[in-house]
């Protein structure tokens, strides 16, 4: 564990807490993509299967349980409790275009051709693009509630913090994880447009609005 990874994980944790807070306080999941949240459930379940057979650390164990549990809870809240506030007509990104290519990439790029390793690779690739339905929805509506933008910013920053962590680990431990690194850089790249608007507008106290 190093400082960058801890910051990344805390940012990830914060993003989920912000998301649940938004749903609970506004009693609504307006502006949120159900598809993106469903993809995160798939990401966490396929990646954290090793919970059942590998012990890394208490920290690792608790965080994995939290990510699986909270993503399932979010999906439940969106699907049942606050269902009427979710508008499927603007959540129209075709997730087949994400899941299919990620599955093919995972079959080609993995550290071992076993079920658990292929699923792990799949989860890494899928995570890198899982935000697309959400960003696509944002693009369509052209604006977002401030709390939703804080959620997206924390979620984007989390993977960005992993980049200095990988550089640090390369120099201190000699560990290189090319699949995670390439996907992580791509994932962070997808947020650049969003970050630009977030830091120039929302952080200055303005509403998140995309230029027409």
């Amino acid at each position: 564990m190093n400082f960058f990874r801890l910051l990344g994980d805390l940012s990830h944790l914060a993003s989920i807490l912000i998301l649940l807070h938004k749903i609970k306080t506004t009693r609504s999941c307006r502006g949120l993509s159900f598809k993106t949240q469903a993809l995160y459930v798939a990401v966490f379940i396929t990646r954290y299967l090793d919970l059942t057979y590998r012990w890394v650390s208490l920290y690792n164990f608790v965080m994995k349980l939290f990510f699986i549990g909270s993503s399932c809870a979010t999906l439940y809240l969106m699907r049942y409790k606050y269902c009427p506030t979710h508008d499927p007509s603007i959540d129209t990104f075709k997730i087949e275009y994400l899941v299919g290519p990620c599955a093919i990439l995972a079959l080609i790029f993995n550290y071992k051709f076993s079920v658990s390793e292929v699923l792990w690779s799949f989860s890494i690739f899928l995570e890198s693009v899982a935000i697309l339905p959400q960003l696509f929805m944002l693009q369509r509506t052209g604006e977002a509630e401030t709390i939703t933008t804080h959620y997206l910013a924390a979620l984007g920053i989390y993977r960005a913090f992993y980049i200095p962590n990988w550089i640090y680990r390369y120099f201190t431990e000699g560990v290189v994880d090319p699949i995670a690194i390439v996907a992580g850089i791509a994932q962070t790249g997808l947020y650049l447009d969003f970050f630009y608007v977030y830091f120039t507008k929302v952080m200055q106290g303005e509403k998140f609005e995309l230029p027409a």
Binding site: S57, K64, D177
Partner: peptide, 10 residues
């Protein structure tokens, strides 16, 4: 298991 296969990151 190699270090990358151990997947100690989240």
């Amino acid at each position: 298991e190699t270090p990358v296969e151990k997947h100690d990151e989240l």
